[in-house]
Structures are given as structure tokens and as C-alpha cells.
Design a protein around this nucleic acid. Structure first.
Length: 152
DNA sequence: AGCAGGTTTAGCG
DNA sequence: CGCTAAACCTGCT
């Protein structure tokens, strides 16, 4: 089976999510239009995401495919997955874990994260602020608030 | 090769 | 605190 697409509504951020599968989970996108969609949850990660947005799930157990990404990006993302629910670390700290000195390079890799939320790039923040987010900083903030609310 | 990026730090007001 | 400037390294063109 190839290219299955699920749609779920994520209430805390008031967005629909497009969840794409190519055998394995291959991409998650925030849908920006104000249009209404029909939710379709056919595969495991979609259910897990739904639970996550209800504050009922703190970690994901699903396979995903990062093979198209550069080695560096894969390394950054695999370190990002280790950040626990409700925790944050700085770009610079993540950079150290990956073995580079450039926080900016790390930010660049995160900006290309094909699977936000499951790979919790929103937990990587600036040393003295929130930092950026591909889907929009407002979403990042709401995700962090959601986790703060359900932590423990 | 050049350049911009989800940064960071130091330096100065 | 706020602002600027420069170093940082990777990936796109």
C-alpha cells in the first residue's frame, strides 16, 4: 500500500493535520485553510496523535521513514525524539548532542522535520526565548502549553 | 561558490 | 533590558 492520507482535527491548536503514510509514517502537515475536513483515522499513528491532542498520550510508538534525509538531519531528529514529554532543550544543547557547534545548522535540520509532533521539534527552543517553528510559532507555543498541562 | 537559516554570544548603550 | 554584529555549519541554488 502506498500513500495513504489520514486527516485529524487537533483541537488545542485549532488545525487539521494531514498524516501521510507510505508503508510507514512519512509525513505530517498542518493544514492552514479555514475549510472543514472529514476526519479519517485508518492507521495507528493517527489514533496516537488523536490521543496526544487530548492529553492522553505522552509518547508515540510508531515506525517512520527518514531515509530521504541527510545523515546530519537524521542525527538531529533522532536526538530530538529523546526529549521527554513536557521538557525542552536549547538548539545549542541539541547541537552538542549531535556533535556540531552550530545551533543554526540544527535549526535548519529541524525546519525540515517531515514529521512534527511525533518527532517533537517543538521541544527545541532558543536559549533566551521560544525560537522558531515551521508551522508557526503560535502552534509551537500551544503544543508546549498542552504538554505542560498534562505533564506527569 | 554563494547564501540564508527555527541560533548564540558578546559588546555597548 | 534592547540592539547590533559576527561566528556558527548545513543544504539549496
Amino acid at each position: 500500500m502506498r500513500d495513504i492520507v489520514d486527516i485529524i482535527f487537533a483541537e488545542p491548536i485549532d488545525r487539521y493535520l494531514e498524516i501521510r503514510y507510505d508503508n510507514e509514517l512519512s509525513g505530517i502537515r498542518f493544514i492552514t485553510t479555514g475549510q472543514n475536513f472529514i476526519e479519517t483515522k485508518t492507521r495507528e499513528a493517527s489514533f496516537q496523535l488523536d490521543e496526544y491532542f487530548r492529553g492522553k498520550r505522552k509518547d508515540f510508538s510508531c515506525e517512520y521513514d527518514l531515509s530521504k534525509l541527510s545523515v546530519f538531519a537524521q542525527k538531529v531528529l533522532s536526538e530530538t525524539v529523546k526529549i521527554g514529554y513536557g521538557r525542552t532543550i536549547a538548539y545549542s544543547e541539541l547541537a552538542r548532542n549531535v556533535g556540531t557547534k552550530s545551533a543554526r545548522a540544527v535549526g535548519r535540520a529541524l525546519a525540515n522535520n517531515p514529521i512534527p509532533i511525533v518527532i517533537p521539534c517543538h521541544r527545541v527552543v532558543a536559549k533566551h526565548g521560544t525560537g522558531g517553528y515551521s508551522g508557526g510559532v503560535d502552534i509551537k507555543i500551544k503544543l508546549l502549553e498542552l504538554e505542560k498541562l498534562h505533564i506527569r
